[in-house]
């Protein structure tokens, strides 16, 4: 098991290295001048030349790659042109908001997707099954940004139940950070009013972000449950006289959970990508919004930084899922 885990960590490290090279290639192979890219569109020719020298962009590509990797290894992701602050610290500032959003969305997706999937598998072609089928199909097809706008219009503008956007009202002072997640910090600091506000603010973006994930989990879990319920060993469990509830909740579910878990990992990455859209719609101050506004300002370093951060986060989650897989499935544990 330890060797298994160690191997996974090495794979992640290797892929991160590859990703770093990939981002370097994107920057340098792309038509256009990387110095100009770094300098931004308003820079004069002199400024571009200065930057070219300063960043070593006049040296051969392999040397540049080496410098770039050395900087990355020391945690230097470069500087944002717009804010002139190091990208790493900015990502550190914005990441908790994104993480909080993704966590809540994942909780909604798994919390609703698993039970609904099981129930529709049990009552195939029943009323609930048809309902969940509509849900799971429209979930993938609904454009997140449009769905978000519709929810804003209805729940925030029309009904005025929920705030339109942001993480907290402007009047509210966020709790002093412990974890960086406002929902958690406000509880730890005993600021229950802040918690309520933060909860109301996160609801709409989390629902929008969770919807495709909910749909996917529901779908996979339903299909896997149906397959598991027909598996030979479940037939045998019935023949041995086990109670139907135990057969479903323990024997079939454990088998169906494995592919569902893989889907959760996949969807986690998908969610990280979609934060780019959802955070734009809801002005959610996370790394997605940071990447988008930087990209629109042709501020390239932050975009690369966010890409690397999202990649690292996604791979870490998938590594954890692989470990959970091995923990559930004894056949993998030995390997």
């Amino acid at each position: 098991m330890l060797r298994f885990a160690l191997g996974k960590v090495l794979t992640v490290a290797g892929t991160m290295l590859g990703l770093a090279v990939l981002t370097f290639l994107i920057t340098n192979v792309a038509p256009g001048d990387p110095a100009r890219l770094v300098a931004g569109p308003e820079a004069t020719a002199d400024m571009v030349e200065t930057i070219r020298r300063e960043y070593g962009l006049d040296r051969p590509l392999p040397v540049q790659l080496g410098l770039y990797l050395r900087d990355l290894a020391t945690g230097d992701l470069g500087q944002s042109i717009v804010t002139t602050r190091p990208v790493l610290s900015e990502i550190g500032r914005y990441f908790p908001a994104t993480f909080e959003l993704v966590l809540v969305a994942m909780a909604i997706g798994v919390g609703l997707g698993l039970p609904l999937g099981i129930l529709s598998a049990l009552k195939r072609d029943g009323a609930l099954d048809h309902l969940t089928r509509i849900l799971s199909i429209s979930g993938v097809a609904l454009p997140a940004f449009w769905f978000g706008i519709l929810l804003q219009l209805y729940f925030a503008v029309h009904l005025e139940w929920l705030p339109v956007s942001g993480r907290l009202p402007l009047s509210e002072v966020p709790p002093a950070p412990i974890t960086g997640l406002i929902l958690v910090d406000s509880l730890l600091r005993g600021q229950f009013e802040t918690f309520r506000e933060a909860f109301l603010h996160i609801l709409l973006p989390a629902i929008v972000l969770s919807f495709p994930c909910l749909a996917a989990i529901l779908r996979v879990n339903r299909a896997e449950m149906i397959e598991a319920l027909q598996a030979d060993h479940v037939v045998a469990a019935r023949a041995h006289g086990l109670a139907p509830f135990r057969i479903v909740a323990v024997y079939a579910l454990r088998n169906a959970l494995l592919p569902t878990l893989a889907m959760i990992g996949l969807r986690f990455g998908w969610m990280l990508g979609s934060t780019v859209l959802v955070e734009t719609v809801f002005d959610w101050p996370g790394i997605g919004l940071y990447a988008v506004s930087s990209a629109l300002a042709s501020d390239f370093k932050p975009v690369v930084g966010v890409t690397l951060a999202i990649g690292l986060c996604f791979m870490t989650v998938n590594m954890l899922i692989d470990l959970a897989y091995a923990w559930i499935d004894p056949r993998l544990r030995a390997a």
Binding site: I26, T27, L272, V276, V303, V304, I310
Partner: peptide, 17 residues
Amino acid sequence: AVPGLALALAIVAALGP
């Protein structure tokens, strides 16, 4: 290893909108 939309965003940012 990187969600498609995020990677595409980075590439577009490099190529220009």
